[in-house]
Design a protein around this nucleic acid. Structure first.
Lengths: 99, 99
DNA sequence: TCAAAATATGTCAATAACGCCATAATTCCT
DNA sequence: AGGAATTATGGCGTTATTGACATATTTTGA
């Protein structure tokens, strides 16, 4: 993860721990964020491909349009749990993106 | 996921949605739970292999021994986010278990 | 162009997940 | 056996995540 990417993430509300304030991200942090990026990309792709609106996906998984929007925009308040639930609804294959 | 496995999970505090109260789990629910099972197994394995105690792992990831114990025992209060952080600390390869 | 549909942003209360502590139960070792 | 180390369980106050709602902005299509 380069500095530019990190700056973008911080602008979106991501907060990095003390140890990485002046340092680079730890491998674990970078991997965790990359996982979220991959999940988001996969969800947006699946949703678009199936012509499902955020509203429809939200209803299918018992959530709200605003939460779907925030998740897809990379708002850090969306957990991996939430991302995986969304992916499970919009795509029948979770394991694919980890190949 | 068969009925026996579900009963065990319910005994541990898992709660299933209305739609699945008298039905089987949806594929999404089953996959989500299987993911947690896989993560837990992988973490326990990695921790044991490296002879790391729950206390040590907890300290490494800024958590507590009791949280690690609950997570490994399948307490539903452990999120996938938490499981992934633990795995990231106890094993440098997250993607492996998804192969 | 203009309205309708879709997406984005902000706020807030309710709930879920968390760290922490105490303590019980189990495992390990001599 | 029995003491030390490790793991398990319960409870509690705090924080993070969530659904819901209002509203703004952007995109789409006639």
């Amino acid at each position: 993860m380069d500095g530019k990417n990190r700056k973008e993430l911080e602008a979106k509300g991501w907060v990095f721990g003390d140890a990485s304030d002046f340092l680079e991200l730890t491998p674990e942090e970078a991997r965790f964020i990359d996982l979220k990026l991959a999940l988001r990309a996969s969800i947006k792709e699946a949703r678009a491909k199936q012509h499902v609106t955020q509203e429809e996906l939200a209803k299918a998984m018992g959530s709200s349009q605003s939460r779907i929007a925030k998740m897809e925009r990379g708002n850090p308040s969306a957990s991996v749990d939430f991302l995986l639930r969304a992916l499970g609804m919009s795509n029948k294959q979770i394991s694919r993106i980890f190949a």
